[in-house]
Structures are given as structure tokens and as C-alpha cells.
Design a protein around this nucleic acid. Sequence first.
DNA 1: AACCAGGACACCC
DNA 2: GGGTGTCCTGGTT
Length: 331
Amino acid sequence: MSNPVGSLSEGTVYGSRIGMTEDSLTISERNRVSVDPWDVVETKPNVETLERGLYLSCFDMLLTEDTAWLVKVSEASPTLAVPMTRMEPREEPEQCPVIDSQEQGLSPGLEGQEEERSLEQMQSMVVGEVLKDIETACKLLNITPDPIEWNTGNVQKWLLWTEHLYRLPHAGKAFQELTGKDLCAMSEEEFRQRSPQCGDTLHAHLDIWKSAAWMKERCTVGDTKTTGGEELWSEADSSCSGQPIHLWQFLRELLLKPHSYGRCIRWLNKEKGIFKIEDSAHVARLWGLRKNRPAMNYDKLSRSIRQYYKKGIIRKPDVSQRLVYQFVHPV
DNA sequence: AACCAGGACACCC
DNA sequence: GGGTGTCCTGGTT
């Protein structure tokens, strides 16, 4: 299979993959099928084949950095083959500077310092993105970042979430009645025994969570030096402060994570607070997950949004469009 | 069929 | 009582 990625550095490729939705991997595909960018995600003939190599190369790259926690991950699961972030073809250009440079075609002569610098940026970005993904999942699922603290319900949520995100076959039953502690004590082989299809993948993901929790602990105890993505953990957030999250807050959170959710909800005009729900069912599912309401659907979610009309929190934009709403007081 | 608007009621904090 | 979740009717795209 030929694709434009082949000529690029692995770090650049992976960096764009994990952190940016205007993914260079998808560029050729978008050129081919320019009608609906979502097709890139839905039809993934070459994604599977790329994923393994890319992810491994990512870890090779990461291992060159002083990130002991990632060494831990790599040692624990050398077969890690699934990215933390799905490919998201839609992204705000300012968030993918490297892609821009790719698209402009960096001359091969600049490989030296330029590449090293962008590699460094990429490394910290990768770490940051991994933490961001975990942080977001914690908020949305209302679970703690440290798997060791999970009860059986939390474990099931995490499983559902991971399966949903990476389109794995459902394996929740195989891990029923297990707490986070149980899960953390299980070897990759035990994971595979319970779920031959995706046990290794789930184990790898759990390892990432464990490592992130470990790193978080290491960072918060002792020095306060900021390293890649660390500040993310200290972000004060309404959804982590004990009180239940409001729908409008939840929507805003999704909108603030275009890397992860740009596919299902995105800004049409951030300044005016106008956003569009691209995948109503998906957003409703996420909301249902967050609120522990398996029966949630867009009909109900939209009813709740409409309650905001009276309260002056959300309204329909002046030019009303389907699935488009507007925050009355944009940030 | 999917979305939209809003009434009514239930539930939980 | 506020903030939904659920169900409903009826209209629009």
C-alpha cells in the first residue's frame, strides 16, 4: 500500500495521529473521497494495517525521552497496537501546525535541527495527549484516573468506553465482577484468556492508565515542575468537584476536546458559541454514559437542551439549522 | 425518518 | 425547587 506517509518521519506521523485530527494519514484518502470526511473514519481499509506500525514507532520514539512511565508501559505490553486517539479527520488548523508544514512540503534538507525540534515537541505532545484522553474519559465516565480504585461498575464503564472508542468487540461479560484492583493484578495472558479477541488490547490500555496514574502520583508528590501535559491534571473542573455535571457543561467539555470528539460535536463559530452536533446518537450515548443513563437518546438530550432556552443558557442560532445550537454566553 | 418545540409528570439531589 | 429524564403530541425538514 502506498501513501504519502511513507516519506515522513515516524514521529511526525504519529504526532499528527495522536494529537491532531487533520491527520496526514487521511490526507490521501480525503483527496480521493472528498465528499464526506467522516468516511475516512468509517471506512478504514488501511487504518488497521497502519495502526500497529505507527503505534510501535510511537513508542520507539517515546523511549528516547526521559519518560520512565512510558518505559514501564512498553515493558509491560510490548504488543501495544492501538492508538489512544482515533483518527479524527476534522480539526481546527491552528491545532495541527505540523500537518500544515507537511502539507506545505518541508524540504528534505531541513531534516536536521528542524526535525529534532519537532520531534521534541511531538514527544511532549504525545504524553500530553495521552493524559488528556484519560482525563477526558474520567470526566465523562465519572471515574477516577487510577484503575486501582475502580469498583466493578467503574471497570464495566471503562470497558464499555474503551470498546466503544476503539471499536472492539464487547467483552464486558468476561470481566464481570472484577474490581480495578483485580484487573490491575491480571497479566496480559489472563486478559487474553478472558477475551481472546481483544484481551491484549484492553490490557495494553489498562497499562497506559496505570502508568498515567503512577506518573500523576509521582508528579503531584514532591516537585511541582511541569512536564508534558501534567498541568492538565490540576485543571479545576466542575465535573470533578463532586457536584453532578450539567448538560451544557458536558457539551462544552466535548467541544473543548476536538481531538477526541470533533467527530460528533464541533464549533461552527466558537466566538459566537455556535456549535453543531454532528453525530446526535453518539453525543447522546456519551451523555448517557456520563450520567449512567443507558436509555439516553438524542430525543431526550435535545429536550434537556431545550429546557435551556428558557434559562438563557443555550438557544437556537438566529438562522436555525438542524442540530445547531448556540451558547447564549460564549466563553 | 430525523429533528424540533414544548407540555406534563416523575425522579433524585 | 432545580435539573434533568421520560413520554408525549404535533409540527417541520
